[in-house]
Design a binder for these strands. Structure first.
Lengths: 203, 203, 203, 203
DNA sequence: ACCGACGGGACCGCCCGTTGTT
DNA sequence: AACAACGGGCGGTCCCGTCGGT
């Protein structure tokens, strides 16, 4: 079982995650985190060496929660096309029933840390790379190998299209507090994914 | 001829615009603007009542510059499909040869001001609304009227799809400093737009 | 006739006087005076070398206006007792129908400039000295000479009592926006002055 | 025993009180308080949320010190006339041997905060009201009930007269650095108070 | 004589981080 | 492990005053 310190650390991360995501790194102050956790500054700095460290942990936690959604949808789908559709659906669900406020943490972190905070920027790059290459392109590649995806399809292109559409839609959702954008884009991307199916697939 | 104050104000905006866009609102300090303009604080505050006012003016200027690109592409294209393709191409060019550093100002402003700066947020909403409804959806609506666009096409859906894809692609471009994402997404969106052409068109 | 510059200067003083008196020296900003006069900073500094100079002129003007009230009351009163009563009545009227807002300028200036602005402090001292010694004590002295005032009366004591009472009453008036304090104190001081009459006076 | 923070806070107040009273609210800067206390800004803002909060605490402390003088004089005097004389004497002593420099804090605060700082103004009103109504008028009222004070005496009038005289005298004392004004006015007010004695008093 | 623009400085407020203490 | 107190610095704002132009 986790020691008391580890549990406290986890509690801080869980409470700080939504705050950082909703208000942004610069806008969020340690006082906010102190108020949310009920801890004093010393109690927080006992677990994190700096505000940035805390923000990194909070970001990681948010990415993990979002990843849980994706993994849950992908589970038990074996066909590449089905997995891509499930991927899209995961974000549709994320928009409709978000596990934390503030929209997509990677979108937020990528934009706000751009040109000012290398470590957060790197974290956002890693998370996005996992989705682009480690998830979508990987699914397409395996789909090509298995003949589920139409030959000639470019895995990287599919990844760029899906994630650009999704992130852009989440931006509009965040900007207007209107899920319609996400639904329209998800519909479109589903059509796009259907068009990737290999019709010559073996029985 | 413009008065000296107006020229100075314009110079401040021109110099502050790239800074705010590249480093973000919170990260950018008045000292940065002072260094870039060579003015003292008093000289800047003579033209802007607050840092926020300056940021608003800088954002507006950036949006105007980006809008110039779009308008230049749209000019003299009358057919709806052509206009939508030109719209996409404007952003492709924006990514390849940006008039200022830091990526899409509306993306940046929308994200960073979210939940912290209502006025900047509103500006971003307005700018995006102009693109969504005032540009893309409007083109589609007129294309439907003229029979250039396939009946049954939803103007708002096209707007959501195009702008989500574009903004998402600009995000990836910004995150990895790799234009490939923009090109792939632009290619995809062009296919999508082609698919909207009314094949039953007269003549 | 006064030159244009002199008229402008007078206009500035007339408009600045009430502002300085009502809001205080430190609280009043040149921007306030600019707004009230419609002039720009250059137009003001053309007539005054500094904010302090302007405040001095404004204070002098206010003192002059208050002095007009006193002189008007004293005029044509020859008997010392009558003149002292008139003096008290002048302040009663000042409280009931003030020529400018903010209460007694000497009270305000004396307090606010204490320990921070020697020139304003000196001006307040001069103005008060004129009232103490140049007016009240002087009246008493002449009244003693003429046998109108009871022998043994100390002119300086009368001056201290009258002006302390008056200024203190004006303070309470200003603090609670209630003239009752002034009326009560004026009544009391009138009794006091009556008690100074030389009952053994000739014919 | 008081915690360290409370002792530091008290030390700040004790050191800031004389500064604020002697130089005024606007003229006193946090740097002054830093220099006097040896603390950095962070150390001060740990105990006070703003300069105004600190000034309020400092004012309260000064009022308390002055109140101690008054209470010490009033103690063990039961007769109303004696208590009023003691009240006057307290201020005479305050002028001769002030517990802090700068004169009467309520006078200073009332004047300087007038029209610019509502909270300080309110504090001054409260403090003065305690003296007017809670002390002087109250003593008179009880004196009337006990037959110590001449029937027909107006408690509020006595309060206005005493406090106006005292505050006005303190003003002159402050303006000329001359206690004579206070002594003369105190003498006069003592005569006045004596005249309020009920000569028909029983036994 | 007045305007407009700019310099230059100072002040408050805030916020991150550290240290001693319990 | 957590608290409480404090350091130290910076950023935005504001304001007075000057100077060139008109």
């Amino acid at each position: 079982m986790a020691t008391k310190g580890e549990r406290t650390r986890q509690r801080i991360v869980d409470l700080a995650g939504p705050i950082f995501n909703a208000r942004g790194y610069h806008t969020t102050t340690l006082t906010d985190v102190m108020a949310a956790t009920g801890l004093e500054k010393g109690g927080i700095y006992n677990h994190f060496g700096s505000k940035e460290d805390l923000a990194l942990a909070a970001y990681d936690r948010n990415v993990e929660l979002l990843g849980d959604l994706v993994r849950a949808e992908l589970a038990e789908r074996r066909n590449a096309i089905d997995r891509l559709l499930a991927f899209i659906d995961a974000y549709r669900r994320f928009a409709h029933d978000p596990p934390f406020p503030g929209g997509c943490p990677t979108l937020n972190t990528a934009v706000e840390s751009h040109g000012s905070d290398p470590r957060l920027q790197e974290r956002a790059r890693d998370a996005m790379r996992l989705l682009l290459d480690g998830t979508v392109a990987r699914i397409v590649r395996r789909g090509l190998e298995r003949g589920e995806v139409r030959p000639g399809t470019y895995p990287d292109a599919v990844a760029s299209v899906l994630l650009s559409g999704i992130e852009g839609a989440l931006l509009l959702h965040q900007l207007y507090d209107d899920v319609a954008h996400v639904d329209r884009v998800a519909d479109h991307l589903e059509d796009y994914v259907h068009s990737l199916r290999n019709e010559e697939a073996p029985g």
